[in-house]
Design a protein around this nucleic acid. Structure first.
Lengths: 360, 360
DNA sequence: CAATACATGGCAACCCGTTGCCGTGACGCC
DNA sequence: GGCGTCACGGCAACGGGTTGCCATGTATTG
């Protein structure tokens, strides 16, 4: 009796199947990639033989001729930041739904690491989602010329983009602080290479004008809890009563750093963050923050990328903007001006200011 | 003047370079893959021509003959869980160091999703790290027969494994609670398919025997904050004074759930978690927990996988065990038995027990 | 100076599918 | 009966590198 088992290291190819099914390799190939092109009975027979032999089509060999690997790259700035978990879930799920595999790349907040990783990966993927890229616009455009690219959390001309409504989120935060009587807001900046960082600051400037709230900026700091703690140090030297932080991690670092210094949040300082990460609800006091639909953002970016890969022209007009909302917790409160209260050293350094006029 | 620019959609191949450098394609190939095999001057010339033409070797075509894609898959149970961020960083960094790209797969705590993803990916990667796999031992062994596999956070015979010292961690937690006077410990279980879940419970049983502490188990619950909050419900019905939770997320959920019900942590109940995620230090009270070196674990797993890929036999003897340590914060305290104190309804349901004898 | 070893580069087969094109036979239609 | 269509399957040429083997020329050795 002949040994029908093949050595385990040898992969089964269409040629093996063809031999066994007594057809040509091309017919086997078509039976899988273009079933309509082959007689349904033949196809069925081939499929059964393939099954019996344990044949799996080799995606690499296929990719060589079709120039489709059915993989997309998802580059994120920092896997340590929980917002990316949502983005990854969203992107991965829609990719899988279309039969695509996601290659995740953590750029570790480094423009260099990011470029290198993309260069290594680019030729093996059909397209790229850049979530919070730290690269320059021109570098991104260069990649976009070679492969379909969708940019997330950033707007670049001529490249399809998905962003959250930063201006509106910032505006809402400013309004909220204004309503609580704050007439100064300090923006604690994140990475300079971060696009949302820039737009949040500019939006705050604008909102400050309209709402008659003074704004200033300190930073940049690393967009981490530690960065926030650093910022708390500087804030001791240049006190504030209302702070808008680049993101929740920094906001949490601020709360910790200030609290450790004896500053009461929100009694002495109100703090607002961005992103509404899970931990925002865990800290004491709970963090008021601008929430955005990151799962949807990841999903939308992937969806768009996939349609581009399928041949649709990239929608490079206005970026797709996702709505945000302000989640009010307990890190923000009315500015404390009650005369009986002993002013903490915190605000004693500055001349007292008038309570802001109630907003229209 | 002839047009030397090539159409942008046409990729530059070794044939183009060969033509331009007046050598054969095989020499170009060797200039890159086996430089010692070709005259250094020729190699240099080829490299310059390649540079000028913008040639990049196509990894897919290379993989077709070498059967090496220089990609490894890293499968994690839940990207939402921050411990995996560390693991990913560790694995990715050592992979990159060796010129490998990491394909990350989020199994979403689902054995089905995990299998499907691996099946789709297996043939395009050189090896797989399974971090906290939820699949059966036999399924894992099946994959291990087809590709190098290293398992993380789990021990399986005949497959190389990297684990943290769960028995020791559990033991330290039990000792700590014992020293605080607790003579009962409730284990709040995580997913049944989770290997650490099983071993932690068994280790607790053992430690309980030796330390003369009674133990019991409730659950399983989802290994998330929400799961912990669920567990808090059940804990109301069956009170405890000391709890060991499967992981930090559950422990945090417990703290929140219990606190909301008016139970004081650690006054009424001491809580210990596992993993020492960042949030453990953020909640109030700070969470006492068993810390493990996840970055190192990810790195070690990748390192081991890479040596296997390079042809070394997988070290399938004893699993590699990484040390752990107990991080004591404020979620654990001496069991409160002071006579003057009004017992909360919490412990009133049970007969008072003797304070545990001081441990040797 | 002959004999041998070595460095270098080319030829051609191979990896595993995909696809344009052609041949064959069955069928329908005038 | 002659002819055009169509379904089906095979041939062979890719895609872009890799590699075993051989040919050539040069350096080494006795």
């Amino acid at each position: 009796m002949p040994d029908h088992t093949r050595p385990p290291d040898k992969r089964v190819t269409i040629y093996d199947v063809a031999l066994e099914a007594a057809v040509s390799p091309s017919t086997v190939s078509r039976a899988f990639s273009r079933p309509s092109r082959v007689n349904s009975e033949t196809a069925e027979r081939i499929r059964q033989v393939a099954e019996r032999l344990g044949y799996r089509t080799n995606p690499l060999a296929r990719a060589l001729t079709t120039a489709r690997t059915h993989m997309i790259a998802l580059v994120i700035a920092d896997i340590t930041n929980p917002v990316y978990a949502e983005i990854v879930r969203g992107a991965q799920e829609t990719a899988i739904g279309d039969g695509y595999t996601t290659v995740l790349i953590d750029a570790q907040e480094s423009d260099r690491v990011e470029r290198a990783a993309i260069e290594r990966t680019m030729s093996t993927v059909d397209g790229i989602v850049l979530a919070s890229s730290r690269m320059s616009d021109s570098a991104i455009r260069m990649f976009a010329k070679q492969r379909p690219v969708v940019v997330l959390n950033r707007a670049i001309a001529d490249v399809p983009c998905v962003v959250t409504d930063n201006p509106r989120g910032t505006r809402r935060a400013a309004e909220h602080l204004g309503e609580l009587g704050h007439d100064h807001i300090t923006y604690v900046a994140g990475p300079e290479a971060s696009w949302p960082n820039g737009i949040r600051w500019r939006s705050l400037l604008e909102a400050g004008m309209e709402l008659e709230i003074k704004v200033r900026q300190i930073g940049p700091y690393s967009p981490t809890i530690e960065g926030g703690e650093r910022a708390a140090e500087e804030l001791s030297a240049r006190p504030a009563t209302a702070v808008l932080a680049f993101n929740d991690q920094m906001a949490i670092g601020l709360i910790r750093g200030l609290t450790r210094r004896g500053v009461d949040v929100p009694g002495d300082v109100s703090i607002v963050g961005f992103d509404n990460i899970l931990a925002a609800d865990l800290v004491t006091p709970g963090l008021t923050t601008v929430a955005a639909p990151f799962y949807a953002a990841g999903s939308a970016a992937a969806r768009h990328l996939l349609t581009m890969i399928e041949g649709a022209p990239g929608h490079t007009g206005r970026p797709m903007v996702l709505p945000v909302r302000l989640v009010v917790r307990h890190s923000t409160a009315a500015r404390n001006l009650s005369p009986g209260r002993v002013r903490p050293p915190w605000v004693r350094q500055r001349p007292a200011t008038q309570p802001a006029a109630p907003l229209p």
